[in-house]
Amino acid sequence: MPGFVGPAVAIRVEGLSKVFPGGVRALSDIDLEVREGEFLVVVGLSGSGKSTLLRCINRLVDPTAGRIWIFQREITGAQGAELRRLRRQIAMIFQQFNLVRRHSVLDNVLSGSLGRARLLPSLFLRYPAEDRRLAHEALERVGLRDRPAARADALSGGQQQRVAIARALLQKPKIILADEPVASLDPALRHSLMRHIEALNRDEGLTVVCSLHDVDLVKRYATRLVALREGRLVWEGQPDQFDRRTYREIYGTDAEPASNAMA
């Protein structure tokens, strides 16, 4: 009998490959394990397969080969209701926020609960009182308490991304996938946005898999790092091991980190 059992494996990826219909090979034979409560950051050039990897985990993209487990339940091959049940545990935050632009802020937040909502009321944008309360709470947490009725596209980029985080909260997920969550935001807002995601990781114990560009952010928020290059996992380590030499290895010899954050 083992004396100590480490945190459970939240995501297990085995031999994952993705070839898009045009013949573009986005991912080649990825093996990866993400433990519960980790803040895993995925780095790599644009086009290195970061987005595809994240989208394979919740099956927005169907892998060409390989298997993925979410808390020991296989999501590759899951269909219909089972796939939706697994997706409910995985909230996603997108670079372009992907709000329903013509819906109100509140309706956008509430749409996070669609996975458990009853079909008919949800089609008429009706939600249980409990979820509405949660939605207001979530908006309060991201500092948007006073604008629930505003149309989503009337908000600034930073505000829209915070609505997206509130939407993710309403999903009551165990895992958060964040695909370049701050790449479309003003640099001044990036840390404040990342801190919201960090809070979910630290306070709620949510597992986060996040792709990032900015070295500053990578070193500040990651508990572990993996690097992709041309669809292959080329490096894995702790944030403090992410030095200039590794950076060149991952991004190519022409690359230079944008800041002095790197020793």
């Binding site: 989208r55 919740n58 927005l60 939706r84 049940r85 697994l86 997706r87 409910r88 995985i90 909230a91 996603m92 997108f94 372009q96 926020f97 992907n98 709000l99 329903v100 632009r101 749409s111 996070g112 609960s113 669609l114 996975g115 458990r116 909502a117 079909l119 949800s122 089609l123 997206a164 939407r167 999903q171 996938l177």
Partner: peptide, 18 residues
């Protein structure tokens, strides 16, 4: 984008369309 976002919540096809 919004279609992906709604799918990711575990919504069903009708909800994704709506």
């Amino acid at each position: 984008g919004p279609v992906e976002a709604i799918m990711a919540t575990g919504a069903s096809t009708l909800q994704v369309i709506r």
